[in-house]
């Protein structure tokens, strides 16, 4: 992995963050920070993956990082945190794994259950679910820390 490809992938990841921000109808002024958040999160995960961490663990760490950054941004610009954090984690959604899981389920129905299809179903499904949970736990952790305090964040 060169620095160039890391930068390029981060730029590609910034586009879905902005696009999904538009689907969720975030205020216009927050779109640049959504892009930055998406690029940062995805780039950080790439770096961790390059250092031979498992994909679940690196997703978890990247999601925690954007959760903590989101607290600072939301204080500074007086926005609810999910406006920044949810579009930023969108590039890490395990779409391909979930899709492969579904494909093997369908073909098990049509051509019959084989060992290869069954193992593909279980492997891809477990991978997709564990990545989804890693994202969710990562986002929940920082806000769990701040709910101890009586004072609200914004």
């Amino acid at each position: 992995m060169t620095w160039f490809s890391l930068l390029l992938n981060s730029l590609w990841a910034a586009i879905p963050a902005v696009g999904f921000g538009m689907i969720f109808n975030v205020p216009r002024s927050t779109l640049p920070l959504c892009a930055v958040g998406g690029a940062l999160t995805y780039g950080f995960r790439e770096v961790l993956l390059f250092n031979h961490l498992s994909i679940e663990l690196s997703t978890f760490i990247a999601a925690t990082a954007i959760g903590i950054i989101g607290v600072f941004w939301s204080r500074r610009y007086v926005m609810p945190r999910p406006i920044y954090t949810v579009p930023s984690i969108i590039p890490m959604i395990p779409g391909t794994y979930a899709y492969e899981m579904m494909i093997s389920l369908v073909s098990m129905n049509t051509v019959g259950v084989t060992d290869a299809l069954l193992s593909s179903f279980i492997e891809n499904g477990l991978r997709a679910i564990s990545i989804l949970f890693a994202i969710a736990f990562g986002l929940v952790l920082p806000s769990m820390y701040y709910t101890k305090r009586k004072q609200p964040i914004i």
Binding site: I23, F24, P82, T85, V86, T96, Y99, L139
Partner: peptide, 27 residues
Amino acid sequence: GRIVLSSSVLLLVPGFPYINAMLDAFK
């Protein structure tokens, strides 16, 4: 083709409901 098929339906990911569900359950 498989990557094309899987990424063209990603606009339907219900990101906010899932994250909100986790946040609510944990709090």
